[in-house]
């Protein structure tokens, strides 16, 4: 039995296998529809979510399994002060696999120390979000056909954006990757996230100007400046509109650029871009379901 609390819990080979399985699910959904019959997934969301929770639940239903859980901490015993460890020990009595989101960093690690069923980290504060990263990787693979030799622009909140941190960690393991980090000074990538870049000698540049780097990009990964990550409301208001992607800004972009966003979007991508074939963020949400199906199968050790 194993747990996935960080994208680094998976080897490059395993990531490639998950992507292959997800692609096979997309092509042959019928083959997979009963593989998790009589299995139960618990979705424990101590923090609200739309896509992650629903995509996990849809993934389990499409595998023929069933789902139980809660969608906010207030509707669980966490509201009465129950510890993460005790909640997990209890849920292990009822479920075969657990996907959990928690506002505190490292909560899934605590869960994995006591769990008797596999734990999947579905986001822990600003720390890790491995299934989003798998979703991003599948999206890039589906849209570009490969995961190597790409110039990847990451734009917006690169300090608190956990999806960005995990994506950097995962993608710098592929050859020929170059990162362009686009953010205001206050929201730059933390030094510990740059460690794999430096160790792997992955080329990267940092800028505050999105327009100047737009023509270079194969992938533009936009992020939201997240209100819930700021202790100070004034800082949030000052930084929230740092980068807004508009059709004008896309004029200098490559024709085969792909724009990703983990969603939810607030106003950082103009809705006028939604119809542009380069915008793939809603397809990305769909790919999220398929890669989670592949991950559930892997952790439950179910083979097609």
């Amino acid at each position: 039995m194993r747990h996935i609390t960080s994208i680094t819990d998976l080897s490059l080979t395993e990531i490639d296998q998950l992507i292959e399985t997800a692609q096979d699910i997309i092509e042959h959904p019928v083959k997979y529809r009963d593989l998790c019959r009589y299995k139960k997934l618990a979705t424990l969301f101590f923090e609200p979510s739309t896509r992650t929770r629903l995509s996990f639940e849809a993934a389990m239903y499409e595998l023929g399994g069933q789902v139980l859980g809660f969608s906010e901490a207030n509707s669980s015993s966490a509201a009465k002060g129950e510890s993460v460890a005790d909640t997990i020990r209890t849920v292990c009595c009822y479920a075969d696999i657990i996907a959990m989101r928690h506002p505190k960093e490292g909560a899934p690690t605590v869960a994995s120390q006591v769990a008797s069923v596999p734990i999947i980290n579905a986001g822990d504060g600003g720390h890790n979000h491995p299934t989003q990263t798998l979703t991003d990787l599948l999206t890039i693979k589906m849209e570009k056909g490969h995961l190597d030799n790409l110039t990847v622009g990451l734009c917006g909140d690169l300090k608190f954006g956990r999806t960005v941190h995990s994506l950097i960690t995962a993608m710098c393991r592929y050859p020929g990757i170059r990162f362009v980090l686009i953010s205001p000074e206050e929201l730059k990538v933390p030094s510990y996230v740059k460690i794999p870049l430096k160790e792997g000698q992955v080329p990267y540049s940092q800028t505050t100007d999105l327009m100047s780097v737009m023509p270079e990009l194969d992938i533009l990964y936009m992020t939201r400046v997240q209100r819930e990550r700021f202790f100070n409301e004034a800082d949030y208001i000052r930084l929230k509109d740092s980068y807004i992607l508009t059709p004008e800004k896309l004029q200098s972009a490559k024709d085969d650029l792909r724009i990703l966003h983990p969603l939810p979007r607030v106003n950082e991508i103009s809705t006028a871009i939604d119809a542009d074939p380069r915008a793939v963020y809603f397809k990305q949400a769909l790919y999220g379901k398929y890669i989670r199906m592949a991950l559930i199968l892997m952790l439950l050790e179910v083979k097609a």
Partner: peptide, 29 residues
Amino acid sequence: RCITSTEQELPHVFKLTNREKDEYRCIYC
């Protein structure tokens, strides 16, 4: 933001991540 800030009974465990720099990191966050 670490889980140890709210769950008082958790042990505070740090792992050696870089021997040259004497660097330890929290196993949770």
